[in-house]
Each structure stands twice: as C-alpha cells, then as structure tokens.
Amino acid sequence: MAYNLKEVAKKPERLTGGHRMCAGCGAPVVVRQILKALKPEDHAVISSATGCLEVSTFIYPYTAWTDSFIHSAFENTGATISGAEAAYNVMKRKGKFEGEAKFIAFGGDGGTYDIGFQALSGAMERGHDMVYVCYDNGAYMNTGIQRSSATPKYADTTTSPAGKKIPGKMQPRKDLTEIMANHHIPYVAQTAPIGNMKDLYEKAEKAIYTPGPAFLNVLAPCPRGWRYNTPDLMELSKMAVETCFWPLYEVIDGKYIINYKPKTKLPVKDFLKLQGRFKHLFKAGNEYMLEEIQKEVDSRWETLLKLAGEA
C-alpha cells in the first residue's frame, strides 16, 4: 500500500510520551516511525544497546515501550536480540507462540559502529530474522558528546576537541552502511527523518518484513551534540540529504538503489554551518577543512552512484 501519512498517524503509538530523551531529540522520532511500520497485530521484541535511548525510555519503574523490550549491555544488543529470536523459532515450532513476532534492535552509533560492531556483524552473518537499527547521531551523546567512528572529520567533540593545534576529530567517518551491505544480507538501507517520513517508514517496513537480517542506518540529529536550536531538527536532517552528506539509498539482495538524488546538490558547508560542532571550520584560514570535507562527500557520492549503476 502506498504511504499515507494520515493512515500512519492513526496507527497506535508504540513508544509513549513520558520518556526522558532531550527536547527535540532525533532518536525518538526515528524510533516512533520505525515502530509504526509494524503491523498492529504483530508482537514486537525490541532491544536497545546502552545509550541515550535505553537509559531514557526505561528508567525503573517506567517503560515507554508498549511492546516487549530488553536491554542488557552496551556492546551486545545484536547478540541479545538474536537469542530472543532463536527462542522464538523454537517456540513457534513447538506451537507455543501464536501469530507473528518481530525482532528489532536499536543502537546509537557508539553501540553500533564501535563497541557493538562485533555482536552486530555476528548477528547479521548468522541470518537471524531481525532488524538492526542504528540511530546515528555521530558521537557518544549519552556520556557527553565523545567522538565515535561515526563522528565526521573535524567535528568538535569532548574527546576530539577543536584545540589550538588539533582542529577536532582528525579521522574521516567510517561508512557502516557500506560495511553492512558487504555482509550480503537481504536488506540494507540508509535513511533519515525527512518530510512526511515516507522514506524512513517504507524502509522500516521493508526491513521488518523482509525475511532474514536487515540493517537500517538512520541519521538522528542531536541538538546538544551538534549544537543547533531544537526546532531545526528536520532542517538539519534535510540538509544532510540535500548535500549528499547522508544519501538515502538501499541495497536489496545486493542491488543498490539510490532513493533520492537532489536536483541541485548543495555544498556541504550549508549543512555544516548550521551546527556549533563545526563552527571552527568557518574561521578564516580553515577553508581547507571545508574543501577537504567537500571532496570526501563528493567522492563517496560518486562511489555510490557507480554502485547503483548511475555513473
């Protein structure tokens, strides 16, 4: 069925208000929309890596999850959910579970790109019928904005501070979506909360209902870590896409599909200038950093076009 915002808005909320995420946080927006893609009659088992999402949505005795939820540690959400899925397979075979259960793991970029990478890779390779969602805000926000391997080059974080000698994080961002595509799993997609959320919703639906493992990498702006005013959440997300910093694409059984190509690809500085973490890039003498970032974005975009057979 074609995406219909009104129909989606009518579906039950599976993440309640009353969680303790910051005002204007991108992560719960992402999570809400992904859970909306579940069929209302399906039971969900959701896990989360330690991180903002987990510590804010399940503070004893309050849980914001209307489905079943499990958190065990930071680096193991891929493994934890895979155990639950394995138990489900047995119970289903034994006739102990009626209907369908879906398994969704959430992790921030810290819990996914870094400390949880091994458990994620293992779970995907083993072929569990599950979705792993990375809500990527580009740093360890829960502990106070430390750099991760998802942090863009030159970003100012509390462990890659823009100092007098070293101008922020000195390494480029790891391309996790690409790494997951190279696991040769049935479905991999990169998305972001954009406009009426069609892209995010449809990818979530495909990921959840494609048998086997699926991976979603979802940009989730963080007003504290990125340093912008909270109302601008959707603007930040949009600019990440319009500059091709964060292309929307999917890899279905190995086939690359670019879901959105900006008519005019905006310069990446239009995305960077909205954020306090890149403020130092706009000082006189630092133009080379902007040029370097632009080159990196262009090169990754060209590679993606080639993979999709569009270049």
């Binding site: 309640t16 303790r20 949505t57 004893y60 309050y62 914001a64 999850w65 489905d67």
Partner: peptide, 15 residues
C-alpha cells in the same frame, strides 16, 4: 530482576 510488566507505563510520567 527489575522486570516491568505494565508496558508503556511511562505515559504516567509527566515531562
């Protein structure tokens, strides 16, 4: 074990 079985009860917490 800290298990909560009144799922979605966070709506009772006012933010």
């Amino acid at each position: 074990g800290g298990v909560i079985d009144s799922s979605g009860n966070a709506h009772l917490f006012k933010t």
